[in-house]
């Protein structure tokens, strides 16, 4: 029953337009849902350039520290000099993004006790702010020394903006889908009338229409996804250079 009904939607040239619309929408949706990925890649590149520059300067001035240069960019320092309890350190270590915690005891002659600075190394520079917020809540003051604050802020606003774009595009796509479905069903009205005359039950007619719509959508989704993947690889290559 469904085979012949499906054939008709492909023979109807009007549906080609909807197929193309679905295909384009799915490419755009794929892009909007992966926009964050592109943004992250772009900022990683920016940060990496920054690290390289630091490394060059350090080599020139013969500065060495315990921390690897690559880690500098994702390190948070505590700034009040207080010692943390063992429990606090364990809590920090168990946080999702925290990779390592290093302790530096610095002796300053005028102080009775040495100052303790903790270096909390996060897995990705993008997660530094979240950890810092956690520290704030715990009453531990801290600072991110090695990245320009403006880059972090810029990154944050761009990220928020991509979320807005994502949901707006999603909403627009949804509306376009509904309009397309309405039109496709409208174009099928003669056939639906015929099916009713032949004695098809309401449920059977609904099933036929649903399968027709799903098939068109699925084909659009699959081709859209394939084309997106190809474009994705191309863009990644471009971002590398």
């Amino acid at each position: 029953m469904f085979k012949n009904e499906l054939k008709t939607i492909f023979r109807n040239k009007n549906n080609l337009v909807y197929l193309i619309i679905f295909f384009i929408i799915f490419i755009i949706l794929n892009f909007s849902f992966n926009l964050k990925l592109f943004i992250n890649k772009y900022y990683d590149k920016k940060i990496n350039k920054y690290i390289d520059k630091c490394y060059e300067i350090a080599q020139k001035e013969n500065i060495t520290t315990e921390t690897k240069y690559e880690e500098l960019v994702r390190t948070i320092y505590t700034s009040d000099g207080k010692k943390l309890t063992n429990e606090q350190i364990q809590n920090l270590k168990h946080l999702k993004y925290v990779q390592d915690i290093k302790t530096n005891n610095i002796d300053i002659p005028t102080f009775q006790e040495p100052i303790t600075v903790y270096c909390i190394i996060v897995d990705d520079w993008k997660n530094c702010q979240e950890i810092q917020q956690f520290l704030d809540i715990q009453g531990i003051s801290s600072y991110i020394a090695n990245i320009d604050k403006s880059i972090l802020e810029e990154y944050q606003t761009t990220k928020n903006f991509t979320n807005i774009i994502k949901y707006t595009l999603f909403l627009i796509s949804l509306i376009i889908f509904i309009l397309c479905y309405k039109n496709i069903i409208y174009n099928e009205r003669e056939n639906i009338k015929l099916l009713k005359i032949f004695g098809y039950r309401k449920k059977q007619i609904r099933k036929i229409v649903l399968i027709q719509l799903l098939t068109l959508t699925l084909i659009g989704a699959i081709t859209g996804y394939i084309i997106f993947r190809i474009l994705f690889i191309l863009i990644n290559c471009l971002l590398k250079f």
Binding site: K7, T8, R11, E190, N191, L194, I197, F198, G199, R201
Partner: peptide, 24 residues
Amino acid sequence: DEKAHLRMEKIGFIFQDFYLNPYM
């Protein structure tokens, strides 16, 4: 649905403008 079943079983329709599905 019962009327639909009865139509299927007992009645055949013919129309002036043939009313065939053009895509079949």
